[in-house]
Amino acid sequence: MPRTYDEDGFQKTTEVKDSDYAKTLPCNKITISDPFQWLSLGLNDLVKSPLISLFYGICFAAAAAGIVGLIYLQGNHSHLVILPALIVYMLIGPFLALGLYDASWARERGKQPSLLHSMKAIGRNSTSQWSFAVLLVVAMIFWMRVAALLHALYPSVEGASIVEFAPFLITGSIAGFILASVVFSISVFSMPLMLERRVDIMTAVFTSFNAVRSNPGPMLVWAAMICGGVLIGFATYGIGMIVTMPILGYGTWHAYHATIQKKH
């Protein structure tokens, strides 16, 4: 059945059968060099959509700068604001990225991206998108609870040796890596899927997880690139995110199209 689109360029909603929920869509095999191609395509989209990129880049930068500034102002009580601040960032980050996905999507269809159209994309599949944002928040709260439990392994004496720190460092690193891997796996392609195909949250999560599991090497490289971009942003008090986040957002859209098989 051919696809039909509304006046905003979005695919029209059709009735979804029960059998279409919680499916795992097939994925392609990708190579270890593909993430570098996605990064290059993201940079190309940044150059071709400077105003949209600047708008969302500033939004990301302002959120990051707000978190860093709030933690700095709280001083000794910074631990009281870290979790709420990060939860807010986890909520708004995926929705800001939707605008970047929409711009890349429009360019793929031969249309000129617009800021207004990209902002409308934020409400395109709002039920699934908000459900996914809540899922990310729950994962972050879970990690904070695990971190609190792991703090029991922290040496209680001042000037402890590296050997005494080893249980805390090793256990914390392993737990953090496992949780970060799971969150990355279920999230890297979920939002693009919910935007373009309007799938339910479980289909998006299952498909994203399967795609990462089927391509561990290339997706590890892409995860490292994303981490690098975010770290650069926070290290520069958010300024770096004006450039890094639009590139990564556009790149994620190209990664999604290269990895998840298209409908025939």
Rank of each mutant, 00 (worst) to 15 (best):
G176P: 02
F177L: 15
I178K: 07
I178N: 11
L179M: 14
A180P: 12
A180Q: 11
S181Y: 12
S181M: 07
V182G: 00
V183K: 04
V183S: 07
F184I: 08
S185P: 01
S185C: 04
S185K: 01
I186T: 11
I186M: 12
I186F: 08
I186A: 03
I186S: 00
S187T: 12
F189I: 00
S190M: 05
S190A: 14
S190P: 10
P192V: 05
P192E: 11
M194N: 05
M194F: 09
M194C: 11
M194G: 06
M194A: 12
E196Q: 11
E196V: 15
R197D: 15
R197Q: 14
R197F: 01
R197W: 06
R198K: 15
V199Y: 09
V199S: 11
D200R: 12
D200M: 08
I201E: 09
I201D: 02
I201Q: 13
M202V: 14
M202F: 15
M202Y: 13
A204W: 09
A204C: 09
A204M: 08
A204G: 06
A204S: 12
A204Y: 00
V205Q: 10
V205L: 14
F206A: 13
F206K: 15
T207Y: 11
F209T: 14
F209P: 03
F209C: 13
N210H: 13
N210R: 14
N210Y: 07
A211C: 11
A211Q: 12
V212P: 02
N215Y: 05
G217K: 10
G217I: 07
P218L: 07
P218G: 06
M219L: 15
M219G: 05
M219K: 02
L220D: 10
V221G: 02
V221C: 03
V221N: 00
A223R: 08
A223T: 09
A224N: 08
A224G: 11
A224D: 07
M225L: 15
M225A: 03
M225G: 08
M225R: 00
I226L: 14
I226F: 13
C227A: 15
C227D: 15
G228L: 02
G228S: 03
G228M: 08
G228D: 04
G229W: 00
G229K: 02
G229A: 08
V230C: 03
V230R: 07
L231M: 13
L231Y: 13
L231P: 09
I232L: 15
I232K: 03
I232E: 02
I232R: 05
G233W: 04
F234K: 10
F234E: 02
A235I: 09
A235K: 12
Y237V: 12
Y237K: 11
Y237I: 11
Y237H: 13
G238C: 02
I239F: 05
I239S: 01
G240S: 03
M241D: 04
M241C: 10
I242Y: 07
I242S: 06
I242E: 08
V243W: 05
V243I: 11
T244Q: 02
M245A: 10
M245E: 10
P246D: 04
I247K: 10
L248F: 06
L248S: 02
G249A: 00
G249I: 00
Y250W: 06
Y250D: 00
G251A: 11
W253Y: 12
W253N: 07
W253V: 03
W253R: 07
W253C: 00
